[in-house]
Amino acid sequence: MWIEDWAPSAACRQASPDALFVRGAEQNKAKLLCKGCPVRTECLAEALDNQIEWGVWGGMTERERRALLRRRPGASWRSVLETAREQHTSPAAL
């Protein structure tokens, strides 16, 4: 199920915003906040669909997101990620 208003459920909601907008090796620490987040997919789709250039979103750095955007320019990332999640969690996939 896709959560439209995902931000209140984010694992990082109580973290300092500065913790997610870091450079270099600090990004790996920031990505740990996303691990196990219940709305990680929605967050990532938001960043990809809106081409947000800075920070860690959905467990991915800006460099990682740019690579995805180059592979599938013009894609609706919400649709791509929602479909992938449905396929991954369907009874046939389990």
Rank of each mutant, 00 (worst) to 15 (best):
W77V: 01
Q27I: 11
A11G: 02
A19F: 00
R71E: 15
L81C: 08
Q87V: 11
K35W: 10
R65C: 00
A47H: 08
R66C: 00
A67G: 05
T89W: 14
E86S: 12
W54C: 03
R40G: 02
G55T: 08
A10E: 10
N50R: 14
Q51P: 02
R72H: 12
P91R: 04
D18H: 08
A25D: 14
G24P: 05
L20P: 01
S16T: 02
L32I: 14
V22C: 03
E42D: 05
P17N: 09
T61S: 14
E62W: 04
N28M: 13
G24F: 03
R71C: 12
T61I: 03
W54Y: 13
S90Q: 02
D5C: 08
L69W: 07
W54G: 03
W57L: 02
E64F: 01
C43L: 05
W57D: 01
Q27R: 14
T89D: 14
C43Q: 07
L33I: 14
C43G: 08
R72M: 15
A45C: 06
A47P: 07
E86V: 09
V22R: 03
R65F: 01
E53P: 02
P8G: 10
E86Y: 10
L32A: 15
R65H: 00
M1G: 15
A67T: 13
R66Q: 12
R72C: 09
I52N: 05
S16M: 04
S16A: 13
W2A: 10
V56M: 00
I52W: 05
V39P: 10
R23H: 12
R78N: 11
E62K: 01
S76G: 01
E86C: 10
V39I: 09
A10V: 05
E42M: 07
M1A: 15
L68G: 08
I52Y: 12
T61D: 00
L20W: 09
P17I: 11
M60V: 06
E53L: 02
W57C: 07
N50C: 04
R70P: 00
P38N: 04
A15V: 10
Q14T: 15
A93N: 05
R23M: 02
L48G: 03
Q14C: 10
L32G: 13
E53A: 08
R40H: 10
G24C: 07
L20E: 06
P38W: 04
V39Y: 05
T83I: 11
E42Q: 13
W54T: 12
G74E: 07
R23L: 12
Q51M: 05
R72E: 13
E82A: 13
G58A: 08
P73C: 11
A92M: 09
P17K: 04
L44V: 05
R66D: 02
K31E: 00
S76L: 06
G59D: 07
W6G: 08
I52E: 12
R13Q: 08
T83W: 08
Q87S: 12
A19H: 04
A92H: 06
K29N: 14
Q14G: 07
A93M: 11
R13D: 06
R63P: 00
N28H: 14
R66E: 01
R78I: 01
R70Y: 09
W2S: 05
I3R: 11
